[in-house]
């Protein structure tokens, strides 16, 4: 079953406007479709799927402002997933690992993508690799569900500094996840 483009786009746009519930639903739908996509591409390495999926979701989240509403949301998330996948393959090749990537253009489908696999790398633990400021901001707001204001008070940062630290931190985290993944 092809992913519901209308629904995906509606949720993405609502999330861009700041609707957290819509954003959560968008990421969940995207995760299902992208997991199915990555599984079909990474036949030889099923263990890598969940790691690259998480890396892709962080990329989708941190770069969501670059979404151009005149294009399909499914093409947009697929382009990001492909990019993360190619980046992954490129790094493996540099380390001398032969990888073959099925290059056929596929339609984004939700078939076989609902069941989550196990990620080898713990994103929460990889936070330790981030600068202290970014680490604290992400931990307090994103993991412990504290408000921006509370996080600002706890860290001594301004509220806008907390927001910037979260944003920058998530971008760094995406890279750290990718690198750790390859080192494994």
């Amino acid at each position: 079953m092809a992913v519901d483009e209308g629904e995906l786009k509606r949720l993405l746009r609502a999330g861009l406007a700041g609707d957290a519930a819509a954003h959560r639903a968008f990421l969940a739908l995207a995760a299902t479709a992208l997991r199915a996509y990555l599984r079909s591409r990474l036949r030889g390495a099923p263990d890598d799927v969940e790691d690259i999926l998480q890396e892709t979701l962080i990329a989708v989240h941190t770069k969501r402002d670059t979404y151009d509403p005149s294009y399909p949301a499914s093409a947009w998330i697929l382009a990001i997933a492909k990019y993360r996948l190619i980046d992954h393959v490129r790094r493996l090749k540099r380390r001398g690992v032969a990888v073959e990537l099925d290059d056929a253009e596929g339609e984004l489908s939700v078939e076989g993508g609902a069941e989550a696999g196990t990620a080898k790398r713990d994103v929460a633990r990889l936070l330790e690799k981030l600068p202290a400021k970014q680490q604290a901001a992400i931990r307090l707001v994103k993991l412990e569900d504290r408000s921006i204001r509370e996080a600002a008070a706890a860290t001594g940062l301004t509220e806008s500094d907390v927001k910037i630290s979260i944003h920058r931190g998530l971008k760094t985290l995406m890279k750290v996840v990718a690198e750790e993944h390859d080192a494994s």
Partner: peptide
């Protein structure tokens, strides 16, 4: 970290993202 937990974390305290 499970993917569902990651999604949960990413959606928390969501800020609008203008182009």
């Amino acid at each position: 970290m499970k993917t569902d937990d990651l999604i949960e974390a990413l959606s928390r305290k969501l800020e609008p993202a203008p182009p």
